[in-house]
Design a protein around this nucleic acid. Structure first.
Lengths: 217, 217, 217, 217
DNA sequence: TATGAATGAGCTTTCATTCAT
DNA sequence: CATGAATGAAAGCTCATTCAT
């Protein structure tokens, strides 16, 4: 039995690695071309395997894309959960989320997430079936909601505004559109962007605000 | 000659009506299913005409979709231009834009507009060719930019923040996501939503803010 | 009754004229684009009438094309019959046929005729049904056969060669290919071409030949 | 390595065979129905495969037809080149060409070739693009021209007649029309037909001719 | 297990023909 | 009669999925 475990594990590990390769290739194509113009042929070609092999790992194109979202979102949720659990102020936590999105690899995921809200077509195709992918979006939203409610409870955020509005307004800052316009086109540095978005967000949200806080930056 | 005019007008009117029916059906399907899963068959079926008839009005699927955007966007731009030209404060102008989006039919258009930033696939398919549709998105953005610059010049908006950031942050409020979450799911009334989004936006943007303005609402 | 005749005749004449216009337009398009790429739309457009009007004169595209061939061929046959009936030598008659083809308007007809032998597609479409169009080709061939048989009977043409071979060989000279190559590309003058084709033909056909007849030309 | 070669060869061979089957079916349909009425559906049905499979071998209908011509013409040109290179008289070479056309499989090709000069429609569709197919017709014509010029140089053919006329007149003998009339309808044996066409051709072309040469046959 | 050839439903587009006006 | 909008069958082509090897 001892002898079997590593063999099984090796197999399993190889399987996992290939699956990761496929998912990574799929993600790349998906970000480049969108759901419909992503073909199983191209994914397989990028990985360097046969098309049929992809089907040994994922039962369908839809399943593959779902898995892709699932993994990314799980990691994202975990990272956010770690943030939430840390003992800093809510403001710092929200700033950290912004930083994750605009400064790090996270943006890629938001772009993916955006696809969920983008083409209603893929929404239907992707989300209606099986294990709804939309739940991932919801779970992220849920974390933000927890954060803003924490902020309201600690007196940091304006308690007169419904938490769901604060949550949604924060989400508005995470749009791919924002990324495209400010980082890609206006060439604003991520760090500066984060500071400014944070400022914009907070000075409509904070219960008491320092009037010219931005001046100092 | 008098006799001819109405006959010509009748024909032309019928043509226009049919064209509108097609565009409306196309828009409905587009909003439901997205670009790729919108088929000429379904559009024709919804209007209750033969597939070939659609091609009497639009030379291709792409042409049909482009025309759809073109008409909506032209009307939208005109409405925004009217707003801009009015002699009210910038804050009231921006509030009017919010009202247009969340209170009226305008939302439908933003949903369409969102498609432009959605699936890179349709982006390529729709926008690369001929008369780029993305320009409509840009033109709207341009109006917002003019508004926030006007606000900065008149001392209403924080001049320390780049106008492009103010513009983009405002755009973040107009996301379909916001609509879905707050109006469709949280069942917040459009009027209240507008007031709150306005408040949230302005109290991060205004050079001088009334601290508890929201209290009064 | 006297009063009716001209009215009827006028109507009929107008009808005929329009029919001619349609046929002429159809012929032009047919020569330019071939059977399948000739559309009823384009024919109607060239005449300047509605598509439906074409169907008042011809029951189908096929019928229209058949009528087109019928008229052209009848005229051609009549002209050849006139030639045959004249009291000149067979050689002069055949030369006259060549002249008709390469020097005059007749070439257009041969080009049409060639369509019959060209695309088997149109052959099937055009000829299988109703009144076979191929008969027109046959009737022309028949005239040539009569001519060469007359030539053999009068000792002008080699009687050792089957008349059908002489006939067919003559037909070979009337190919559109010959026209394209020698008149369009090699820019040989029609008159010279006729003389040379005649010479080539006759000096393989004539029972007794003048050895260097061409020299004199 | 030895083990790999046959495996690769097997796949490749099967691919080739399938491709040949498709080309043969396509040729059959093409000869029966012409370019436009040849459908990918019918080709696939005749081979007994799915339509999509055809597209695994040829990127488009046009590509398929082009390949069809390309293969046939290349083989034909090679055969003619072999003929030309042989050390027999020009007359024997030309006779060999006739024999190839009327006695052998070659006729099928001339029929295809005829399609090139047929419907201007397919001409445009087939020839305008990419690697012009018309060049194959031209290359054959070129070989004939070389032959007749050789004949004129060696005193065998009448040097008073432009070589291009001799060439074209010879081409006239190779028309599908000739085949239809003399072999299919008049039931003349290919061998006899060749002899007679040769005679007809040569006795209008030869500088010096034997008067009753045909008598001996 | 891995392959990739084969499949066929489904899409966009065209155009001869019909028919209400 | 004349019109031209409407029709819908049919074509070329794509691609997710299957399966024999």
């Amino acid at each position: 039995m001892d002898a079997d475990v590593p063999r099984y594990t090796l197999r399993e590990r190889q399987r996992q690695e290939r699956e990761d390769l496929i998912l990574r290739a799929a993600e790349a194509v998906l970000l480049e071309k969108g759901y419909h113009e992503t073909s199983m042929d191209e994914i397989a070609a990028r990985v360097g395997i046969a098309k049929g092999t992809v089907y040994l790992h994922f039962t369908s194109k839809e399943d593959l894309i779902q898995e892709l979202f699932k993994r990314d979102m799980q990691q994202l949720l975990q990272e956010i959960d770690t943030l939430i659990a840390s003992s800093v102020t809510v403001r710092e936590k929200l700033r950290a989320v912004l930083r994750q999105v605009y400064g790090g690899m996270l943006y890629r995921r938001f772009r993916l997430l955006a696809l969920l809200y983008d083409s209603p077509g893929s929404r239907q195709a992707l989300l209606t079936k099986k294990e709804s992918l939309r739940q991932y979006g919801e779970q992220i939203a849920q974390r933000i909601l927890v954060l803003v409610e924490e902020g309201q409870a600690t007196g940091l955020l304006n308690a007169h505004i419904p938490a769901v509005v604060l949550q949604t307004a924060f989400f508005g800052l995470l749009t791919p559109y924002v990324y495209d316009r400010l980082i890609t086109q206006a060439h604003i540095e991520p760090d500066e962007l984060i500071a400014q978005l944070e400022y914009v967000y907070f000075h409509g949200v904070a219960a008491n605000e320092a009037s010219q806080e931005l001046e100092k930056m």
